[in-house]
Each structure stands twice: as C-alpha cells, then as structure tokens.
Amino acid sequence: MVDEKNKILSIENLVIKFTLRGRELTAIRDISLDLYKGESLAIVGESGSGKSVLMKSIIGLLDKNGYIDQGKILYEDYDLAQFKTENDWLKIRGKEIAMVTQDPMTSLNPLKTIGKQIEEAVILHQGLKGKSAYEKVLQIIRDVGIKDAERRYKQYPHEFSGGMRQRIVIAIAIACNPKILICDEPTTALDVTIQAQILQLLKNLQEKYHLTTIYITHDLGVVAKVADRVAVMYAGDIIEFGKTDEIFFNAKHPYTWALISSLPQLGEKGKELYSIKGTPPNLFNEIKGDAFAPRNPYALKIDFVERPPYFKVSDTHYAKTWLLHPNAPKVEPPEVLKKFFEEGRQYANG
C-alpha cells in the first residue's frame, strides 16, 4: 500500500488560516498526508479539530474568510493550493473529487425531481445526452440500491425517507464519475439500522466504481467498519496515522489512547468512564509544543516547549509524540486500553 506510484493525492505542509473579526485563527497547522489509490481513509477527530476544513480545502469549498497560507495539495498535474477562481475548481470538483455531506435533508434541491438532479451531474460530467443520459441515471439509481428506478426518477426529495435521500446524494456524487469520494459524517443523521445499510452501500460502490474514499467521522465504530487507514486529528494537526488495526490496537499517541479509552464499550458498568480533562486549545493563540500537552497526564517537560515530529512505529504507522523518542521514559497506556489491545491482538491471531 505504501507505494509512491499509487499516490493519488498528496498534501504537503498545509497551513490554513481564517480571519474572524480582525483576528487570525490557524485551523490547519502544517499537515502532510498522502492518499493512495483505491484505499479507504478515515479522518477521526472531535469538532473543531479541523477535519472538515482539511477536506473542504481539497475541493475548494473553504468559507470565504479562510485561506491557504502555506503548503501544497498535489493532485495529478495540479497544485490545488494555487487554485484561485471558481473556473479552476470546476475542473476538479465533482469530476475528480466529489463529496457526500452529513445532512441529506439540506443537500438536495426540493423543487427538482431526483432524476433530474442526478441527470444534471451525468450531463455535465459524463457528457451524455437525451436517452443515454436517462438510461445512465436509471442505472445509477439502481446501483445505490433504490428499487423501481423509473418511478423513483420522477419523484421529489420530500417523497423519500432520510436513508433514501442519503442514497440519492450518493447517487449524485457517483454520477460525476469521481476518482475520490469524500464522505463527511455520511451517517450521523441516520438511524443505526439505516447507517449499516449506507456504509455497506458505500463499500460496494467503492469497489464497483474503483473509488478512493475519505471518511470524516468521530465514530470509531464506523471507522472500524469501513477504513483501511486512519488519521487522528487534534487541534488542526494529524497527530497519529496508520492502518486501522495499528491505530485501534497499537496506538501510541496519548490523545488516541484517550479517545479509545473514553468509548462506552470499554467502560465497566457502575464505574467511571475514562474521560479527557479540560478542553481543546484555542486556535486563535499560538500553540507551543504538543497541543495536547495541557490535557495529557503523560506529558513530558519537552511537550510544553517543542512540537514533536513524527516518530516511526512501522512503515505505515507514525505518531507525533515525544513518548516515542529513544530517550523518553517508558510509559504504558491506561489499564483499560491494555486489555482492549490484548483482545484485539487475539483476534488478529485468529
């Protein structure tokens, strides 16, 4: 999987800032990330960690007051960080990189039939017309698991349930024939039984349409279900990334530890659930050292002074924590987590 040739998108030293009431906020603090063809990457983080901002920047949907301060976003022959006009983005958005958003209620046009909405994308991005465009739409409707395509084509969004609407949003994204599909909390607004169906659908489509997918989520259960690789974000930085198994069962960064430990599945009934003290840092201020240090019970002195670089755990697994420095004291993860890791390893061995 770590094969330079298979890189489809590459983010290099990206810094994104926002201007808010005359003050400057750094939302993305020097992030580098590679995306490989055909993989499914999950970006995990809490609200305000910058996961949505990062994804918006690669399809040119940053809010007006946000801008790329430094860094590159390399896709094929383009550096998306240099794109200025809407015309530039039209070459990429939809056609190459498409996005499925959280709320299917607001991302559809209530005044147009769903068939027409999918057809727009087919005509614009696949260059089909008339009957062939219509046929293509019907095929896509069937591909996203909606039965009775001819009748459904003529219906309006309000005639569909939440889960069905999300299928239509996905259909529109697929109709653009993108290479990369970004799914921003695709199932947060849906019930669990529907969530399971939509996640399965996305997995099937990924295979059928040879997509590379990025999931943005805060739900580690969803991550376990869909992702090959995981990147964990905190305060505008990717503090750890690796294969899904590596992040779940061999995490190295204390924030990743804390995130997994606070899952109710790891809690023992009647006892306190592990919780992270304090709140995330204010991104208006300059962050010194490791952003997680003030909330980190394992913080070393150096964590407050110097920002840690990535330390290598394996060829695919890196973490930004001084605890991995050869001179650092040896620190064990919390007890509950050790048990969880142990269980995971048992699964891995059969």
């Binding site: 669990v192 039984t193 279900k225 198994d245 995971g344 699964y347």
Partner: peptide, 18 residues
C-alpha cells in the same frame, strides 16, 4: 438493532453480518 451497531473493533466488523 444490536447487530447494526458498529463496534470499535476492525476484526469483528469485517466478519460481522448485520
């Protein structure tokens, strides 16, 4: 309902049937 809840364990999730 119970089978639909994704568990934070990639090994279990890959083999699970909803």
């Amino acid at each position: 309902l119970i089978s639909a809840v994704p568990e934070p364990n990639p090994y279990k999730e890959r083999s699970k049937k909803v």
